[in-house]
Amino acid sequence: MKVNYVRKSTGTRTTIIIPDHLGQLWLATTPSNAVTRDTKRIKERLEQLDEPEAGEPFQRVAESALVADIEAYQARLLVDGEKMRDRVIDSLIPWLMSAVEPTATAAEVLKEIERFKTIPWEISESYESLERQRDAS
């Protein structure tokens, strides 16, 4: 992914190539309400970076900043682990109640859960908690 922009701190025009896998992962972990092109979102993030120290390539600074953003997202998910687990359980309980009889044995419930795990899922991720977190700060 090639990104052209002007660094805000110095006004230096910069062209940088971000590896596609890093760019896509960063975009996936930095939700945005704005309807903007992917390169514009990355460009806006890179414009915020300071000049690198002498002898350090700006490529390393840019990639390190994107990786730090991804790791921060991962840390927020890990902190939210218990709540996330509870949300998953809460979502499954209504389905489970309709899938098995109230008198079902534990073995029957586990068998139904195994069957449920084989159903293909279409995953859609929600960033509600991160949006609330961003709005609160």
Rank of each mutant, 00 (worst) to 15 (best):
Arg115Val: 06
Thr36Ser: 14
Asp86Gln: 15
Pro102Met: 09
Leu78Gln: 01
Gln24Pro: 00
Gly11Met: 00
Thr12Arg: 12
Ala104Trp: 05
Met1Asn: 02
Ala68Val: 07
Ile93Thr: 14
Asn33Pro: 04
Lys117His: 09
Ile42Leu: 13
Leu66Arg: 09
Asp86Thr: 11
His21Lys: 09
Ala107Phe: 02
Ile17Met: 05
Ser64Pro: 00
Arg87His: 14
Glu71Lys: 08
Glu122Val: 12
Asn33Ala: 13
Phe58Gly: 09
Gly81Asn: 08
Thr29Lys: 10
Ser64Thr: 14
Met1Gly: 14
Glu108Lys: 12
Gln74Arg: 12
Asp20Tyr: 05
Thr10Ser: 13
Glu101Cys: 12
Val100Ser: 07
Tyr127Ala: 10
Thr39Ile: 10
Tyr5Gln: 01
Asn4Arg: 12
Ser129Thr: 08
Glu108Val: 10
Ser124Asp: 00
Ala54Ile: 06
Ala136Val: 07
Asp50Val: 08
Ala136Ile: 07
Leu130Asp: 03
Arg7Asp: 02
Leu46Trp: 11
Pro102Ser: 12
Lys117Gln: 05
Ile93Trp: 13
Glu53Ile: 10
Val100Gly: 10
Ala136Arg: 13
Thr29Met: 03
Leu78Tyr: 01
Thr10Ala: 03
Asp80Trp: 09
Leu77Thr: 03
Ala72Trp: 01
Glu71His: 04
Leu96Pro: 00
Ile70Asp: 00
Thr14Gln: 10
Glu71Met: 07
Lys43Thr: 14
Asp38Cys: 09
Thr30Leu: 02
Thr36Tyr: 09
Ile123His: 02
Met84Cys: 10
Thr105Ile: 06
Ala106Asn: 02
Asp20Cys: 05
Ser129Cys: 04
Pro19Gln: 04
Arg41Val: 12
Glu63Asp: 09
Lys117Glu: 01
Leu46Gln: 05
Lys111Gln: 04
Asn4Ser: 14
Ala68Tyr: 06
Arg37Ala: 15
Glu114Tyr: 04
Ile113Lys: 09
Leu49Lys: 09
Gln133Trp: 13
Lys40Met: 11
Ser9Gln: 00
Leu96Glu: 02
Ala62Trp: 06
Lys8Trp: 03
Val67Arg: 13
Tyr5Ala: 04
Ala54Lys: 07
Leu78Thr: 06
Leu25Tyr: 04
Leu110Lys: 09
Thr12Cys: 07
Ala104Lys: 08
Gly11Cys: 00
Pro52Thr: 10
Ala72Asp: 01
Glu63Val: 08
Arg87Asn: 15
